[in-house]
Amino acid sequence: ASVAVIAAGTQGNIFATSALRSMRFLQILRMVRMDRRGGTWKLLGSVVYAHSKELITAWYIGFLVLIFASFLVYLAEKDANSDFSSYADSLWWGTITLTTIGYGDKTPHTWLGRVLAAGFALLGISFFALPAGILGSGFALKVQEQHRQKHFEKRRMPAANLIQAAWRLYSTDMSRAYLTATWYYYDSILPSFRELALLFEHVQRARNGGLRPLEVRRAPVPDGAPSRYPPVATCHRPGSTSFCPGESSRMGIKDRIRMGSSQRRTGPSKQHLAPPTMPTSPSSEQVGEATSPTKVQKSWSFNDRTRFRASLRLKPRTSAEDAPSEEVAEEKSYQCELTVDDIMPAVKTVIRSIRILKFLVAKRKFKETLRPYDVKDVIEQYSAGHLDMLGRIKSLQTRVDQIVGRGPGDRKAREKGDKGPSDAEVVDEISMMGRVVKVEKQVQSIEHKLDLLLGFYSRCLRSGTSASLGAVQVPLFDPDITSDYHSPVDHEDISVSAQTLSISRSVSTNMD
Rank of each mutant, 00 (worst) to 15 (best):
G407A: 06
K270T: 10
K254N: 02
S463F: 11
V347G: 10
R256G: 09
V340A: 01
E327V: 11
R218P: 11
Q397L: 03
H386L: 15
K332Q: 03
T398P: 08
G209V: 13
G420A: 13
W183C: 09
D490E: 13
S261R: 08
R264Q: 12
I393L: 03
A165S: 13
D493N: 13
I446S: 06
M511V: 15
M511K: 08
S483Y: 08
P293H: 12
Q204L: 08
L312Q: 07
V496A: 05
S383L: 12
N510Y: 08
S240N: 03
D388H: 01
V378I: 09
T509I: 13
R217G: 06
I503M: 02
D401A: 15
Q402K: 07
E368A: 15
I356F: 09
R352G: 05
L198P: 06
S506A: 15
H491R: 13
S261I: 14
G385R: 15
A413T: 11
R212L: 01
H448N: 00
E425D: 14
A320S: 10
T369A: 10
V489E: 11
G464C: 05
T182S: 05
S458W: 01
W183R: 12
T294I: 10
P245H: 01
P238A: 11
T349P: 03
T266P: 10
Q204P: 01
H448P: 04
T349I: 11
Y178N: 01
F200V: 11
K270E: 08
P231S: 13
S188I: 05
D304Y: 13
K295E: 07
D341E: 11
M251I: 05
S249C: 03
S333C: 02
A177T: 07
L179P: 14
P324L: 13
C336Y: 04
S431R: 04
L360M: 06
V474A: 09
R459L: 13
K358N: 06
T291S: 11
A225G: 08
E321Q: 12
Q297H: 07
P345T: 02
E492K: 15
G407V: 12
L390R: 14
A346P: 00
E429G: 05
M344L: 02
L314F: 15
E415K: 13
V350A: 01
D451Y: 02
V496I: 15
D423V: 10
L169R: 06
V361A: 07
S458P: 06
E415Q: 13
K363T: 02
R352C: 01
K332M: 09
S468R: 15
S261G: 15
E425A: 13
Y178F: 09
T339R: 10
P421L: 15
R264W: 11
C235R: 03
S269P: 14
Y184F: 15
R207G: 07
E201K: 01
T280I: 01
V287M: 06
F200I: 14
L190F: 07
S383A: 06
C336R: 09
A206T: 05
D255Y: 08
S353F: 06
N510D: 09
D255E: 06
A323P: 06
G210C: 02
L453Q: 02
L314H: 12
D401E: 13
A498P: 13
Y485D: 10
L476R: 13
H491Q: 03
S284C: 08
E425G: 15
T306P: 12
T306I: 04
K348Q: 06
E440K: 01
V436G: 01
D484V: 14
R462L: 10
S192F: 06
S506W: 09
L196R: 11
D342E: 09
F456I: 07
E326V: 03
S311F: 11
V232D: 12
D512Y: 13
Q286L: 12
I403V: 14
Q473K: 10
P279L: 10
A323D: 07
K298E: 04
S431G: 07
G455R: 13
G417A: 05
